[in-house]
Design a binder for these strands. Structure first.
Length: 285
DNA sequence: GAGTCGTGGGG
DNA sequence: TCCCCAAGACT
């Protein structure tokens, strides 16, 4: 049996970004729809909108030259501003991410919970940052958390500061776990309505979940039509059952072909609806 | 300051 | 297949 090996050409998503939006100017000028399209599948779609706004801020004001200026950029908070300022600008400011929270909590044996823990960790990191090489220092601290002081398997025997660590006897009890919010089940109904080779489709408002992304018309009330399947997906503490209905007698505004929909930014859940229930004429996708 | 946002990987 | 987990920024 002679089987030809098919080598799929997979372009990493960051290369797609760099190809389509090579500079901050391209990103700032891009349609937010194109940014969402590149972001599709990654979740947290408000971040894509903030990234776009951040690029526009930079084109208008120029690249920030300090931590405090970076903080003004939409979508850039204290962690990101600290990382950029210390690594790229050599400014002696801390870059405190979740890894550093954990390192701090174990090192100090702190039972503080977020967000208080974050404040304590940032204050501590601000005091110990190595001023001769703040970028290297911050990366080392974060890597210590990622590689050694790991969430579920702390490697204390290889840790350079084990002797000073107050949590080394029972590292996994730090940081204290945050109380989980009780999850809620939501049932939503998506209309799969095909007419003249096109499907009903709509763009969500920017204030809705996955704002600006496209979806098969989805609402809380059932449509009129047979339920042909159910997609389950989880968004933070929501367990969503997305019931897909074969809808016939209903008016919709926007219609697009399967090929057109394939190029629209869809969230992962809506992409699953597409893959499971929309059959491309060519059989692709 | 508490609530909110999406997805993929690991057990 | 199900359940649990995880980071950072905005409002």
């Amino acid at each position: 049996m002679c089987q030809q090996t098919q080598v799929a050409t997979v372009i990493p998503y960051w290369e797609r970004w760099l190809e389509k939006l090579p500079t901050v100017h391209h990103l700032a000028k891009a349609d937010v729809q194109d940014v969402l399209g590149l972001w599709a599948g990654l979740g947290y779609y408000q971040r894509a909108r903030n990234l776009h706004r951040g690029a526009q801020w930079i084109v208008e004001h120029g690249f920030p030259k300090s931590y405090s200026e970076w903080l003004k950029v939409p979508g850039v908070g204290m962690y990101t501003a600290g990382a950029i300022a210390s690594i790229c600008l050599g400014e002696a400011v801390p870059a405190v991410d979740g890894n550093v929270h954990r390192v701090y909590a174990r090192l100090m044996g702190s039972n503080a919970e977020l967000p208080k823990l974050a404040n304590l960790a940032r204050g501590w990191a601000n005091g110990v940052v190595f001023k001769e090489a703040p970028g290297e220092w911050n990366q080392a601290l974060m890597e210590l958390g990622a590689r050694v002081c790991r969430p579920r398997e702390a490697s204390c025997s290889t840790c350079p500061i084990e002797s000073q660590c107050k949590g080394k006897e029972n590292p996994l009890q730090y940081p204290v776990p945050k109380v989980k919010k009780e999850s809620v089940e939501l049932i939503r109904y998506a209309a799969l309505c095909r007419r003249m080779g096109s499907y009903a489709i709509r763009q969500t408002a920017s204030s809705e979940w996955a704002g600006g992304m496209w979806e098969f018309p989805t609402r809380e009330e059932p449509w009129s039509g047979e339920v042909i399947g159910e997609i389950r997906h989880v968004i933070t503490h929501h367990r969503i059952k997305l019931r897909v209905q074969d809808v016939r007698d209903q008016e919709f505004e926007d219609w697009k072909t399967a090929e057109e929909i394939a190029r629209l930014p869809l969230s992962a859940a809506q992409r699953r609806v597409y893959r499971q229930f929309v059959v491309m004429p060519t059989g692709s996708v």
